[in-house]
């Protein structure tokens, strides 16, 4: 079957089996290997991409269900030599060790900051109806879908906080 996607602003067509996930379509069919496969079961967040601007686990999604969708992967944010604010912050703050979870962390944080700016509450928010400052505890909760086996969490949170400050 054939599926049309817009990936990082470019129209792409993928020819695939019905059971191909969005993750495998990106990595194996489009050679966009920045998006990682950790668990393949929605448990680690390494495969996080943006679909129409919202973060999802690409491993738990069928490519066929994304016909016409806009997908953003880590390759779409910046490149060596021209990193975006968040990528730069991860470098500055040492927000990784092995780097395997990093693309997922950065894609997730990209959307998370957007959600927070739109006033979406989280599990740890004191109020559901007032404004919520993006504290360290808020960042930790909102990023809990991204695991880091190297446990670089404190620096990941610092990098995200730094980038959030820069943008506001």
């Amino acid at each position: 079957m054939k599926t049309d996607l817009t990936v990082n602003g470019e129209a792409r067509q993928v020819e695939h089996e019905s059971r191909t996930t969005l993750l495998d379509a990106l990595r194996d069919h489009l050679d966009l290997t920045g998006t990682k496969k950790g668990c393949d079961h929605g448990q680690c967040g390494a495969c996080t991409v943006l679909v129409n601007g919202r973060r999802v686990n690409s491993c738990l999604s069928l490519a066929a269900m994304h016909d016409g969708d806009e997908i953003t992967t880590i390759e779409g944010l910046g490149e060596p030599g021209a990193l975006n604010t968040l990528q730069e912050a991860f470098v500055n703050k040492d927000g990784y060790q092995c780097g395997y979870c990093t693309p997922g962390q950065i894609m997730s944080a990209t959307a998370m900051l957007e959600e927070a700016r739109d006033g979406a509450p989280s599990h740890v928010s004191e109020t559901l109806t007032g404004s919520v400052p993006l504290t360290d505890a808020e960042i930790a909760e909102r990023m809990s879908g991204n695991l880091c086996r190297c446990s670089a969490y404190p620096f990941i949170r610092e990098a995200i906080a730094m980038s959030a400050e820069k943008k506001s």
């Binding site: 929605g42 967040g45 973060r55 999802v56 686990n57 738990l60 997730s108 990023m143 809990s144 879908g145």
Partner: peptide, 10 residues
């Protein structure tokens, strides 16, 4: 209180 931001989006 359930799942993650990514999963709740889907």
């Amino acid at each position: 209180a359930g799942a993650s931001g990514q999963i709740r989006n889907k």
